[in-house]
């Protein structure tokens, strides 16, 4: 009888331990803010980079827009605030790309109203760009247009941040299958030089 009691006690202890382990794990798993497995750094929310009109040092950046024929990307030069560190600089570049009024004859490839939710950088030099769902819901579709949208983001970041190697686009904080049904967004993407056309690059003064 005593043995049985000891057995029951041991079982109860094991069950309690298991329960603690499960709930503890659950909390641990909920903890990371970043949606990727890689260690990442997030832009401090308290210090958003200032807009292009603000005072302070600037860098000349190439922002990629749809070319005149609508089948390539053109790097348009624009002043973007200089930011401390890769993450903040990537965020400044993305905000400039989302806010740009495309100079004729070029056009923006990103649906109007798309907002930036966050930027992260992994220790494998991958940039993660988190956009809100507008980029998908307002997208006109078509694989050419989807390629231009994806690679205007990828190329803008990788051309201006040469130490970075790849970019992955997240939508609403989630890894996404694709934007408009074609391009595979489950992996980080490299720069696409094949899409870039280099005409006389127009310099745009800050508006």
């Amino acid at each position: 009888m005593r043995r049985v009691l000891v057995g029951v006690a041991a079982l109860a202890a094991a069950a309690l331990f298991g329960w603690l382990l499960m709930t503890g794990l659950g909390r641990l798993l909920r903890a990371p803010a970043a949606p990727t497995a890689d260690p990442v750094a997030e832009v401090p929310a308290v210090a958003p980079p200032t807009g292009p009109t603000a005072e302070g040092p600037k860098i000349k950046a190439s922002l990629f827009l749809a070319s005149e024929d609508g089948q390539r990307l053109v790097g348009v030069q624009q002043d973007v605030p200089l930011a401390e560190g890769t993450v903040a600089q990537a965020r400044a570049l993305m905000e400039a790309l989302l806010a740009i009024t495309a100079p004729a004859p070029y056009s923006s490839t990103i649906p109007a109203g798309t907002t930036l939710r966050g930027v992260y950088v992994s220790d494998r030099n991958e940039v993660f760009v988190d956009l809100d769902a507008t980029v998908r819901t307002k997208h006109p579709g078509g694989s050419m247009q989807e390629l231009l949208t994806v690679y205007s983001v990828v190329n803008t970041l990788l051309v201006n941040l040469p130490t970075m190697t790849e970019v992955q686009i997240l939508i609403d904080g989630q890894e996404s299958d694709s934007l408009a049904g074609h391009v595979d967004l489950r992996r980080p993407l490299r720069k696409n030089d094949g899409l870039i056309v280099t005409p006389e690059q127009k310099t745009q003064s800050p508006s």
Binding site: Q71, T109, G141, Q145, R190
Partner: peptide, 21 residues
Amino acid sequence: NAAVRPLIKGAEVYYLSVERA
């Protein structure tokens, strides 16, 4: 396909490009 420029037309063929991963 679809493009922002309504003048673009014609067919295209794609095959896969392999990313680093």
